[in-house]
């Protein structure tokens, strides 16, 4: 067989090879994204995602969407502009959540015995689905960044509320009031995570009384818009093929 001859001999064979490529690429993409996104999220979201006593209504709501919209924006740029595939955000979050669950279950619980109800990850899926759908229906980076980025920030807290609310039930403990999440942080000893490094309920957002979560979510959404633009262009830059000469193809 010469170099100019095709490796496949029929259309059916070409389709079969193409599908094999599809699954190989999807599999590879999934695990590469899982690794990269997981490390990125652990380094930037870190404790806010690790522990329930960090999942507050101000900083967790603000930080988690901002630092987690990064990879979805970049992978969307590659998959959408190169292949018109609108699952960039969802595939990222699927990878991240799988990696996080493996980490939390095997490491946090399996090795160090922190109960899973204390160290489960945040849910990013609602925002990811909406982000993908907006890109697909709008076909515009600007629209996805502005509407999708804002929605990504806004959906984060309500998307997690069914899981986190039971842990915000108050309890009286030795004469002090705290939430069950606070009590988990107090009971399950972390020698390397003293209470004072917990960045919760800090800031000057006092005007809105107890309703600070929506304000934090809006702020998070606004910053997510900017981060989306930035990382979408990173993704586009990484997905370019200018370094491949057409003679090589």
């Amino acid at each position: 067989m010469s170099a100019s001859q095709s490796a496949v001999r029929s259309r059916a064979e070409a389709v079969k090879v193409s599908r094999t490529f599809d699954w190989l690429i999807l599999f590879t993409l999934f695990f590469v994204v899982l690794g990269g996104y997981h490390i990125h999220y652990m380094l930037t979201g870190g404790d806010w995602d690790f522990w329930t006593d960090w999942k507050d209504r101000r900083l967790w709501v603000t930080v988690a969407p901002i630092v987690s919209i990064t990879f979805p924006a970049a992978v969307q740029a590659c998959l959408w502009w190169r292949y018109r595939l609108p699952f960039g955000a969802v595939v990222c979050v699927l990878g991240l959540l799988l990696g996080e669950w493996v980490n939390r279950y095997l490491n946090f619980w399996g090795w160090t015995y922190f109960p899973v109800n204390f160290c489960f990850p945040s849910n990013l899926m609602p925002g990811a689905i909406v982000l993908d759908v907006i890109l697909m229906l709008g076909g515009s980076v600007t629209l996805t960044a502005v509407v999708g980025g804002l929605a990504y920030g806004l959906l984060f807290y309500p998307g997690n509320w069914p899981v986190i609310a039971p842990l915000h039930v108050p309890v009286e403990y030795n004469g002090m009031m705290m939430t069950l999440a606070d009590l988990q942080g107090y009971h399950y000893v972390r020698t390397g995570t003293p209470e004072y490094i917990r960045m919760v309920e800090k800031g000057t957002l006092r005007t809105f009384g107890k309703d600070v979560a929506p304000v934090s979510a809006f702020f998070s959404g606004f910053v997510s818009i900017i981060i989306y633009f930035l990382w979408h262009f990173f993704g586009k830059w990484f997905a370019q093929t200018t370094f491949i000469s057409s003679d090589d193809l």
Binding site: D53, D56, V169, P170, T179, V200
Partner: peptide, 10 residues
Amino acid sequence: KYPITTPLQA
């Protein structure tokens, strides 16, 4: 289901 919740205490 959880009408009474409070913020984390710090």
